[in-house]
Design a protein around this nucleic acid. Sequence first.
DNA 1: TTCTGATCATTA
DNA 2: TAATGATCAGAA
Length: 231
Amino acid sequence: MSAIRPLTSSPESEIELLTQAQQLAGYTLGELALLAGLPIPRDLKRDKGWTGLLLEQWLGASAGSKPEQDFAALGVELKTIPIDSAGRPLETTFVCVAPLTGNTGVVWETSHVRHKLRRVLWIPIEGSRDIPLAGRRVGSPLLWSPDEEEETQLRMDWEELMDLIVLGQVERITARHGEVLQLRPKAANSKALTEAVGTHGEPILTLPRGFYLKKNFTGALLARHFLVPGE
DNA sequence: TTCTGATCATTA
DNA sequence: TAATGATCAGAA
């Protein structure tokens, strides 16, 4: 019997990472915050990224705002995902910012979306707002890579959205585009603007956008993992 | 009740 | 401003 403790350096293998993640399953966010010496906010209204940062610390992710995978040496991205009592996602999952300029000739194979999602460590976490933040439990982790079907779904949506961006239609894109991947604002507020391409190829200013995984997609991949007998 | 558009904190 | 970490909250 040994106490759990945060990894102080980056894990050197997927096994080490997954093992540590499995150790955290069942603990509450309050317990993990206390053991890590982090203050617990009352709720997430002004600390939306708190859970993600807490788990980063426990798993030895390279902290900070580097445009890299969380575990660069392993090629693994960490994602916490809030779930309801039935294990279904409560929120969409942010993937990365969408490039709105300089996209002539871009292809799926070298896209940021594909790179980010190549290998993901999913950590489900109880997210219902009627559970106090400190009482929310961490679930069993899932180390995932998209299968052929998932990759096809992602590529189709990505190509549709990127086509619209390249053609100057970014402001006509809504969250309803895409079956599993959607484009939505990703900004401090509605006044934060970035450069994009207009209808006639001219530069325009518009809201920064991000790619998000829709709940049907993440819900299915979690369900596939947790419903398979013998796993 | 769900979903889309908007928003919050922090670090370069 | 843009990148990281995401959830909020009003409209549908």
